[in-house]
Amino acid sequence: MTGALEAVRARRSWSKVTDAAPTHAELLRLVSAAGRVADHSSLRPWRLIELRGSDREVLGRAIHKADGEKGHSTKPLRAPLLIAVVASYRKSGKVPRWEQEAVASGVAHMLSLLLDEAGWGVIWRTGHYTRSKAVAKAHGLGKDEELLGWLYVGGKPERSGGGRRKALDARPLLSRMPA
Protein backbone atom coordinates (compact mmCIF):
# COMPACT_ATOMS: atom_id res chain seq x y z
CA MET A 1 0.00 0.00 0.00
CA THR A 2 1.46 3.34 -1.04
CA GLY A 3 0.08 6.52 -2.53
CA ALA A 4 -3.03 7.22 -0.48
CA LEU A 5 -1.56 5.79 2.73
CA GLU A 6 1.57 7.92 2.44
CA ALA A 7 -0.44 11.02 1.49
CA VAL A 8 -2.60 10.61 4.59
CA ARG A 9 0.41 9.96 6.83
CA ALA A 10 2.19 13.05 5.49
CA ARG A 11 -0.83 15.37 5.83
CA ARG A 12 -0.58 18.27 8.22
CA SER A 13 -2.41 21.54 8.76
CA TRP A 14 -0.67 24.68 7.50
CA SER A 15 -1.72 27.69 9.58
CA LYS A 16 0.58 29.99 7.59
CA VAL A 17 0.74 29.86 3.81
CA THR A 18 2.23 31.95 1.00
CA ASP A 19 0.29 34.00 -1.56
CA ALA A 20 0.38 31.26 -4.21
CA ALA A 21 -2.86 29.35 -4.79
CA PRO A 22 -4.24 26.71 -7.16
CA THR A 23 -6.13 27.93 -10.20
CA HIS A 24 -9.84 27.40 -10.72
CA ALA A 25 -9.02 24.71 -13.31
CA GLU A 26 -6.77 22.89 -10.83
CA LEU A 27 -9.55 23.04 -8.24
CA LEU A 28 -12.10 21.59 -10.63
CA ARG A 29 -9.92 18.52 -11.16
CA LEU A 30 -9.42 18.00 -7.41
CA VAL A 31 -13.07 18.65 -6.51
CA SER A 32 -14.13 16.10 -9.11
CA ALA A 33 -11.98 13.49 -7.35
CA ALA A 34 -12.99 14.59 -3.82
CA GLY A 35 -16.64 14.19 -4.76
CA ARG A 36 -16.12 10.43 -5.00
CA VAL A 37 -16.61 9.97 -1.24
CA ALA A 38 -19.25 7.50 -0.06
CA ASP A 39 -22.62 9.16 -0.66
CA HIS A 40 -25.74 7.11 0.19
CA SER A 41 -28.28 7.53 -2.65
CA SER A 42 -25.81 9.81 -4.51
CA LEU A 43 -27.54 12.92 -3.14
CA ARG A 44 -24.43 15.13 -3.39
CA PRO A 45 -25.53 17.09 -0.30
CA TRP A 46 -22.70 19.57 -0.53
CA ARG A 47 -21.27 22.43 -2.49
CA LEU A 48 -18.12 24.50 -2.36
CA ILE A 49 -17.63 28.25 -2.78
CA GLU A 50 -14.30 29.78 -3.91
CA LEU A 51 -13.32 33.00 -2.15
CA ARG A 52 -10.44 34.94 -3.66
CA GLY A 53 -9.36 38.59 -3.63
CA SER A 54 -12.06 40.96 -2.40
CA ASP A 55 -14.41 38.03 -1.60
CA ARG A 56 -12.29 37.54 1.51
CA GLU A 57 -12.93 41.15 2.58
CA VAL A 58 -16.68 40.64 2.16
CA LEU A 59 -16.38 37.62 4.44
CA GLY A 60 -14.31 39.68 6.91
CA ARG A 61 -17.10 42.27 7.13
CA ALA A 62 -19.70 39.53 7.64
CA ILE A 63 -17.61 37.99 10.44
CA HIS A 64 -17.36 41.34 12.23
CA LYS A 65 -21.09 41.93 11.72
CA ALA A 66 -21.77 38.52 13.28
CA ASP A 67 -19.64 39.57 16.26
CA GLY A 68 -21.43 42.95 16.50
CA GLU A 69 -18.34 44.86 15.41
CA LYS A 70 -17.69 47.41 12.67
CA GLY A 71 -15.05 47.14 9.97
CA HIS A 72 -13.79 43.78 8.81
CA SER A 73 -11.94 40.84 10.29
CA THR A 74 -8.54 40.09 8.80
CA LYS A 75 -8.92 36.36 9.43
CA PRO A 76 -10.03 35.60 5.85
CA LEU A 77 -6.90 37.34 4.55
CA ARG A 78 -4.62 34.67 6.03
CA ALA A 79 -4.69 32.71 2.76
CA PRO A 80 -5.12 33.70 -0.89
CA LEU A 81 -7.88 31.12 -1.40
CA LEU A 82 -10.67 30.08 0.93
CA ILE A 83 -13.01 27.28 -0.01
CA ALA A 84 -16.30 27.45 1.88
CA VAL A 85 -17.68 23.99 2.64
CA VAL A 86 -21.47 23.95 2.53
CA ALA A 87 -23.75 21.12 3.61
CA SER A 88 -26.64 21.35 1.18
CA TYR A 89 -29.30 19.09 2.66
CA ARG A 90 -31.65 17.16 0.36
CA LYS A 91 -35.06 15.75 1.20
CA SER A 92 -34.70 11.99 1.62
CA GLY A 93 -36.62 9.27 3.37
CA LYS A 94 -33.49 7.09 3.45
CA VAL A 95 -30.60 9.47 4.18
CA PRO A 96 -30.83 11.43 7.45
CA ARG A 97 -29.47 14.96 7.83
CA TRP A 98 -26.47 13.83 9.93
CA GLU A 99 -25.39 11.43 7.17
CA GLN A 100 -25.63 14.18 4.56
CA GLU A 101 -23.45 16.42 6.74
CA ALA A 102 -20.97 13.55 7.04
CA VAL A 103 -20.77 13.39 3.23
CA ALA A 104 -20.09 17.13 2.99
CA SER A 105 -17.41 16.79 5.67
CA GLY A 106 -15.92 13.83 3.83
CA VAL A 107 -15.67 15.85 0.62
CA ALA A 108 -13.92 18.67 2.49
CA HIS A 109 -11.45 16.32 4.13
CA MET A 110 -10.76 14.46 0.89
CA LEU A 111 -10.21 17.79 -0.89
CA SER A 112 -7.79 18.89 1.83
CA LEU A 113 -5.81 15.67 1.34
CA LEU A 114 -5.74 16.12 -2.42
CA LEU A 115 -4.66 19.75 -2.12
CA ASP A 116 -1.91 18.77 0.33
CA GLU A 117 -0.68 16.00 -1.95
CA ALA A 118 -0.67 18.49 -4.86
CA GLY A 119 1.75 20.66 -2.87
CA TRP A 120 -0.62 23.22 -1.35
CA GLY A 121 -0.79 24.20 2.31
CA VAL A 122 -4.27 23.70 3.76
CA ILE A 123 -6.03 24.16 7.10
CA TRP A 124 -9.74 23.68 7.81
CA ARG A 125 -11.00 26.60 9.90
CA THR A 126 -14.33 26.93 11.63
CA GLY A 127 -15.77 29.21 14.30
CA HIS A 128 -19.04 30.22 15.88
CA TYR A 129 -19.73 32.60 12.99
CA THR A 130 -20.18 29.68 10.57
CA ARG A 131 -23.75 29.58 11.92
CA SER A 132 -24.37 33.34 11.86
CA LYS A 133 -26.98 34.94 9.60
CA ALA A 134 -24.53 37.59 8.34
CA VAL A 135 -21.98 34.99 7.22
CA ALA A 136 -24.68 32.75 5.69
CA LYS A 137 -26.03 35.74 3.75
CA ALA A 138 -22.55 36.68 2.50
CA HIS A 139 -22.20 33.15 1.09
CA GLY A 140 -25.69 33.12 -0.44
CA LEU A 141 -26.75 30.06 1.55
CA GLY A 142 -30.21 28.65 1.03
CA LYS A 143 -32.66 27.67 3.77
CA ASP A 144 -31.52 24.02 3.65
CA GLU A 145 -27.81 24.82 3.80
CA GLU A 146 -25.21 25.20 6.54
CA LEU A 147 -21.65 26.41 6.39
CA LEU A 148 -19.23 23.83 7.84
CA GLY A 149 -16.15 26.04 7.63
CA TRP A 150 -13.45 27.00 5.15
CA LEU A 151 -10.39 25.37 3.74
CA TYR A 152 -7.68 28.04 3.80
CA VAL A 153 -5.34 27.25 0.90
CA GLY A 154 -2.00 28.70 -0.19
CA GLY A 155 1.58 27.83 -0.94
CA LYS A 156 3.59 25.85 1.58
CA PRO A 157 6.24 28.12 3.07
CA GLU A 158 9.80 27.01 3.70
CA ARG A 159 9.61 25.49 7.15
CA SER A 160 12.46 25.20 9.60
CA GLY A 161 12.34 22.36 12.08
CA GLY A 162 9.05 20.58 12.57
CA GLY A 163 8.29 17.91 10.05
CA ARG A 164 5.76 15.14 10.25
CA ARG A 165 3.08 14.95 12.87
CA LYS A 166 3.51 12.49 15.71
CA ALA A 167 2.30 9.01 14.77
CA LEU A 168 -1.09 7.98 16.13
CA ASP A 169 -1.34 4.91 18.35
CA ALA A 170 -4.54 3.33 17.03
CA ARG A 171 -4.69 0.54 19.66
CA PRO A 172 -6.86 2.43 22.22
CA LEU A 173 -9.17 3.66 19.44
CA LEU A 174 -9.90 0.36 17.67
CA SER A 175 -11.75 -2.39 19.52
CA ARG A 176 -13.91 -5.43 18.90
CA MET A 177 -17.62 -5.72 19.50
CA PRO A 178 -18.29 -6.60 23.17
CA ALA A 179 -19.19 -10.22 23.84
Rank of each mutant, 00 (worst) to 15 (best):
A102E: 03
G93N: 07
R159S: 11
L174E: 08
L5Y: 04
A79T: 14
H40A: 09
A34Y: 03
V8L: 15
S88Y: 06
G154E: 01
P45R: 07
A21L: 14
V17C: 08
K166H: 07
D67W: 10
D19F: 06
V153I: 05
H24S: 13
E158P: 10
E146W: 08
S92C: 08
G3N: 15
G155Q: 05
D144H: 05
P80C: 02
L113D: 01
V103K: 02
G119H: 03
W46T: 04
G162D: 09
P80T: 05
Q100R: 14
A102K: 13
E69P: 03
G93W: 00
E50N: 13
G121D: 00
W150M: 00
V95D: 01
V135Q: 00
T130E: 06
R44P: 07
S160Q: 14
A20L: 11
K133E: 15
E117Y: 10
W150A: 02
A84Q: 02
A4S: 14
D67Y: 14
G161N: 11
K91N: 02
H40I: 06
R165I: 02
S42A: 10
S13A: 15
V153E: 03
W124C: 02
K156Q: 15
T74W: 07
A66Y: 00
I83V: 14
L113H: 01
G140N: 12
L147M: 03
E50S: 10
K156M: 15
E57R: 01
V95H: 07
H109L: 13
A20R: 13
H109W: 13
T74G: 13
R56I: 00
A33W: 09
A136Y: 05
G3P: 12
V135D: 00
L51T: 05
G161F: 06
L113G: 02
A20I: 13
R171S: 04
M1S: 14
I49S: 05
P76H: 06
R11L: 04
P178C: 11
P80N: 08
S175R: 15
W120R: 08
A79Y: 07
G140C: 06
W14A: 11
D67V: 05
P96S: 06
R176L: 11
A10E: 15
P45Y: 04
G119V: 05
G140Q: 10
G140W: 11
A134N: 13
S105Y: 10
H109K: 09
V95G: 03
W14D: 06
L30Y: 11
T130S: 07
L27H: 00
A102Q: 10
E101K: 11
A34R: 07
L82C: 01
